[in-house]
Design a binder for these strands. Structure first.
Lengths: 118, 118
DNA sequence: GGCAATATATCGCCAGGCAAGCGATCACGC
DNA sequence: GCGTGATCGCTTGCCTGGCGATATATTGCC
């Protein structure tokens, strides 16, 4: 199992991850957790104490919508991305891209200098 | 002037930026602020209330070292990166690269779907 | 003298990740 | 039946760290 990422790194893009997963199809919390884990190559282990407050926040912001479903045997809360959520996703993806480009540019000079491995 | 980045995005990599600047040469706080601003294409405006606590934190962790200097006319506090700081920089750069790759992979599927601009 | 820029610093607010814990349900083996 | 572990949702409290506001002093310019 490779190393996980620090909380501060994740902070910027957990919304992004969740929204992107939901953009690929509706699902419920627990499954979302598994999907993020898998999609990240076991690197992002979304904790329950992180996931549920996050979902509630996104719902409060009308970016996602929820519905209890028990017809599938088990009582689960399904989440679906809204139109506003898709807009946010695309905006946030764009911001992410700009950010990455920005940091890469800042790191470029030192990549050649500090390539001394421990 | 392009849009700035949200605090949550910056949170993951401000240390990285400061260390990378200092790896390129010693300098003092205020100048560092200007350098980050310039190096980021005016996108990262490091606030004083962010910068100084950050520098103190890095110093407490022995990643940088400081020295008051007033021989250059003005009294300024110069910061220099330590050996431990360089190691941290290289480790954090590696983590950043892994993180970016991870997120890019997660976003890849939705890039083709949600390309509907507002 | 007045005012902006330079230079460092601190305080309090607040958002949010996360550990820990809770309660409930379901499947499986014994 | 009964324990055990996975599934499923949720909450509380801690702690970190960016940021606005504010303080303070110096320098240069008009």
């Amino acid at each position: 199992m490779s190393q996980r990422f620090g909380p501060d790194l994740l902070r910027g893009s957990l919304d992004l991850m969740v929204l992107s997963i939901l953009a690929g199809g509706s699902t419920y919390g627990y499954d979302l957790q598994q999907r993020v884990l898998e999609a990240s190559g076991q690197l992002v282990q979304l904790q329950a104490g992180t996931l549920y407050p996050l979902l509630h926040r996104l719902e409060a912001d009308k970016l996602i919508r929820s519905r209890w479903e028990d017809s599938t045997g088990r009582k689960r809360k399904w989440y679906e991305i809204t139109a506003a959520g898709k807009q946010r996703l695309s905006a946030q993806t764009a911001e992410w891209d700009r950010y990455v480009a920005c940091i890469q540019a800042m790191l470029a000079p030192i990549r050649s200098i500090v390539t001394r491995p421990v």
